[in-house]
Design a protein around this nucleic acid. Sequence first.
DNA 1: CGCCGCTTTGATGGAGATCAACCTTCGTGG
DNA 2: CCACGAAGGTTGATCTCCATCAAAGCGGCG
Lengths: 246, 246
Amino acid sequence: MPDALIKKLEHFVHLSSNDKDVLARAAAERVRKLGAHEHIVAEGEKPKAINLMLDGWACRYKHLEDGRRQIVGFFLPGDLCDLNVFILREIDHSIASIGGVTVAEITRHAFETILDGHARIAQALWWDSLVTIAIQREWTVNLGQRDALERVAHLFCEIFLRLQAAGLTRGKSCHFPVTQTELADATGMSTVHVNRTLQELRNMRLINLTNRMLTIPDLPRLMRTGLFNPNYLHLEREGAHLDANE
Amino acid sequence: MPDALIKKLEHFVHLSSNDKDVLARAAAERVRKLGAHEHIVAEGEKPKAINLMLDGWACRYKHLEDGRRQIVGFFLPGDLCDLNVFILREIDHSIASIGGVTVAEITRHAFETILDGHARIAQALWWDSLVTIAIQREWTVNLGQRDALERVAHLFCEIFLRLQAAGLTRGKSCHFPVTQTELADATGMSTVHVNRTLQELRNMRLINLTNRMLTIPDLPRLMRTGLFNPNYLHLEREGAHLDANE
DNA sequence: CGCCGCTTTGATGGAGATCAACCTTCGTGG
DNA sequence: CCACGAAGGTTGATCTCCATCAAAGCGGCG
């Protein structure tokens, strides 16, 4: 079931079949299905369990008091929400589904058991959270320095590569269920300008986006347009020295 | 020596005197002094040691290929750089001193010994890194949603509260060694507009900034101006149930 | 003194916000 | 089966915040 997670982690280190079993069992304990635009985690809550995305997309966001909203990250299948978060008394942001989603809840206890008993998984999960942090930094750069066209291009590159790492692309295409309003909240732009920027990207033959399906005919070119450097995703098997030998 | 770190961590949990000794010894092992604008960590390097800021400020930043620079965070005394980072093969950003700094290097081994042998310290350090991540998210919000005035106001609030938590403020004032150029790189604004925004904040009697000294006459009002909500700093002793009883 | 890093000021231009419609698609119920 | 409404997408006109360009103050220090 947690194929996307396993596939992603194997960009860091090869897991043993036992490792994979352990993850599969943890992800099967308690599975929830949610509709579109439901809260997975709400600001102010006490952390309860770790959520693993099995299917569908979600986003993490924060509201300002006057209603402005910033999406600060997307959760794709295989992504985990906030490993260590039990330490905090109160969550400072919200996580909501975008379309319908399937989520596995992993209890604190189950999670700690895995970390204690399976060093290779533990390392892989720490790697994953370091990458999550690096992504957050890159979003900061994206909003601070890139103009509209670069910003949207960069976001497409990031998401495509992350989906690819999780085995969720087909050739040059992938599912892309995000509305223009949500893109606006993620890029700090107005919906109107997101719309115009998408048109520009289409006119430049950099993307094809229709019916929630994204196609990137020439990824290297899109990467150049967005000044995208994939190093922060750390997908080059940086944990290879820890590989399971089977 | 690592008073700022200890003081900060005690906003989460009260440490025992033994805990404090352990931290003090780790921070005294290898101490480096650097001048202004020197690299503490450079992009592309292999992670070597964990750096603890003892004195002075630093910043984490990323460059785009065309030279644009975004500062994605400030390091203040008591701050640690990237706990778990040994897992990665290559650092994806740079860290540079702002003025002169004193830094303690903590080896991977020394660090892991502490984590294994001192659960309370380990929890406090995880808390600290969760807060660091929350700060990164808030920077994303800041750049995505707030206008120039709000953005600078928000940054001042954040830094003042972080310094206060580390015991580095005096009444309503604190040291503030950041140039307007660096403020521009941190807020994604031009230096010219930073300058004008500072003037506006001064005219509104919200700040007083001269000779690298910042005074905030009415912090609650500055917080309102910057739509600042301190919850993401998690300073409310959220680990009190783990306090040392002495 | 004279230079360098930093700050300040004025003038101009542009990227993107805002406002206000209108259109398309699709699910729902009469 | 079509009417209707809601959600998402598109377009045009206008405005504004902030970038950019250019130059001038201003300490501080070798």
